[in-house]
């Protein structure tokens, strides 16, 4: 009984190879509908030329209560210079997301992802996750979780990328 039990226990530690979209890679070309709608699909590739921050959030994600207002402030500040935040929502029910948004309103575009296609394309490993993409479509920074440091680091990097041309 000892050896089979030990093998059972040990096999748990064999995890699947973990891939992730990291800095330096091209942003996945994926499209998703706006939050609460089924059509039309918004493609991330259409935003090429702008600095894009793709943020994965949900109503049940506690750090999102801090990240969403912080990202909204950043968006308002730099949108005229070609910066856009795209919030990809991971709630199963759009109603939960809407309830969160009445408490924490944001002005940047929001997409739904009920089939998990966008999250899988970006190989999201944590909630929230943010991917900063430059004007040329390359991922430059990945943020997992959200703290005060994340906000500061993001602000700096956004300023830098906005100065870059295509």
């Amino acid at each position: 009984m000892r050896l089979p039990t030990a093998i059972l226990a040990a096999s748990v530690f064999i995890s699947h190879p973990v891939l992730a979209v990291e800095a330096g890679q091209a942003a996945p070309s994926i499209a998703a509908p706006r939050l609460g709608e089924a059509q039309p699909l918004v493609a991330i590739a259409d935003l090429r030329g702008q600095v894009v921050y793709v943020d994965f959030w949900a109503s049940w994600c506690v750090p999102c209560r801090i990240s969403m207002p912080a990202l909204d402030a950043l968006y308002r500040k730099h949108r005229d210079r070609g910066f856009v935040v795209v919030g990809v929502n991971k709630d199963v029910e759009a109603a939960d997301a809407q309830r969160f948004l009445t408490r924490v309103p944001v002005s940047f575009p929001l997409l739904g992802d009920s089939a998990d296609r966008v999250a899988r394309a970006f190989e999201v490993k944590a909630m929230p996750s943010g991917y900063l993409i430059d004007r040329g479509g390359t991922v430059r920074q990945v943020h997992r979780g959200f703290t005060a440091q994340t906000a500061a680091s993001l602000e700096e990097e956004v300023e830098r990328l906005l100065k870059e041309s295509r």
């Binding site: 039990t5 059972l8 748990v12 995890s15 709630d91 998990d116 909630m127």
Partner: peptide, 28 residues
Amino acid sequence: TRALAAISIVALLGACAPVAPYQRGYLA
């Protein structure tokens, strides 16, 4: 021994299909 085996089986079940961090709405 049964208890340890049961815990190991529970653990093995988990190795099969990890739930992604963005699929945790219900679990929260």
